[in-house]
């Protein structure tokens, strides 16, 4: 008999729902886009809440959530944005692992806070890995579910660790686990985001550099997983608005000749030819991922030492949850 791996049947796909893990690492040298969850913190926490590896694949749900019918008993956790999660029509909490019966329907009533939610499932979403990752890169049709966002009628499958014979016994110890409230980020506008200046901040006038760190920037509707086009104080270059193309990081803020910054994110091309005024520090990328068109972002400069201190702090928090997982599994 063929094993039944079915997990969700997609009744409605939502606005833009894709399979994402932590991205395709090691192929930028070939021009390959990294992709992966826009909000890595929310993805990692969702996975840890259901007892997965941090890098397991989950659904990234944008603004308008899908309607999913469960094909098996499963353990889920929704993290990130509050998009109005419902189980059989009733509100249930996010940032918490929840036991869900076969035949139940998950839906989302509407966005209340943030932009992107993550639906993690015990065992992970199983799609064929491409270059070591299950992340969807829609522009090239690579990875995820057939290289594209979900559509009605799609059937998602669960990874091997979600295929227990006795799911109740095996997974219930992980049910009803939640994060301490102080670990759960709050999303609002304006979003205060810390940056490390450069590498080409010296290609801008002093006035522009000051304005960049003083004025709020609007997230325009021309914003997606590739990057956010921002509008605010226009930035002036001291010379030509181009450099010899070099690598751009997730969070790099490049400024073309027009003076409106572009904040590059998960689906950015690995290289670019515009001067970069600053780069958002990694712990604050999650806040950027939760900003939606119409929100404002304020940038604040910090030192490299400070960013690394914040990173260590963040990783200690994640380490605590991992330790708790080991205690559950014994």
């Amino acid at each position: 008999m063929v094993q039944d791996n079915r997990l969700f049947e997609v009744i409605k796909p939502g606005l833009f729902t894709t399979v994402q893990d932590l991205g395709r690492i090691g192929y930028q040298q070939y021009g390959m886009v990294v992709s992966g969850a826009m909000d890595p913190f929310a993805l990692r926490m969702g996975n840890l809440l259901v007892g997965n590896d941090e890098n397991d694949a989950a659904l990234e749900i944008t603004m308008v959530g899908p309607v999913l019918k469960t094909c098996r008993d499963c353990l889920i956790a929704v993290t990130g944005a509050d998009l109005g999660l419902r189980l059989d029509g009733h509100p249930i909490p996010t940032w918490k692992s929840v036991w869900v019966r076969q035949g139940a329907v998950l839906s989302f009533a509407g966005a209340r806070q943030g932009c992107r939610a993550y639906l993690a499932v015990r065992g992970g979403i199983d799609v064929p890995p491409v270059m070591g990752s299950r992340s969807t890169y829609v522009k090239a049709g690579i990875g995820g579910y057939n290289g594209r966002p979900l559509r009605s009628g799609d059937v998602l499958e669960v990874g091997i660790r979600g295929l227990s014979e006795r799911p109740r016994d095996d997974f219930l110890p992980f049910a009803n686990r939640r994060l301490p409230p102080e670990m759960i980020p709050r999303y609002g506008t304006p979003v205060h985001v810390r940056v490390i200046l450069g590498p080409q901040h010296d290609m801008f006038t002093m006035d522009s550099l000051e304005a960049f760190l003083r004025e709020p920037y609007l997230v325009t509707p021309q914003s997606d997983r590739m990057g956010y086009r921002l509008k605010g104080a226009r930035l002036t270059h001291t010379g030509p608005a181009e450099i010899i193309s070099d690598s751009v990081a997730c969070g790099s803020i490049q400024v073309p000749a027009g003076g409106n910054p572009i904040l590059l994110l998960a689906d950015r091309q690995p290289t670019g030819g515009y001067p970069k005024i600053a780069t958002v520090i990694s712990v604050d990328l999650s806040l950027v991922a939760q900003a939606k068109p119409g929100d404002h972002i304020c940038f604040h400069a910090v030192s490299l030492e400070e960013s690394h201190r914040l990173l260590r702090q963040r990783e200690q928090t994640i380490q605590m949850v991992k330790t708790a997982n080991r205690l559950v599994t014994g």
């Binding site: 690492i25 930028q28 040298q29 690995p270 690394h308």
Partner: peptide, 22 residues
């Protein structure tokens, strides 16, 4: 070192600051 990206006239190195400092 996590990955390296050679370009025309630069080499970018992605690293894990929890393992190696700048």
């Amino acid at each position: 070192v996590v990955e390296i990206v050679p370009a025309y006239a630069s080499l970018t190195i992605y690293y894990d600051p929890l393992i190696i400092s700048y």
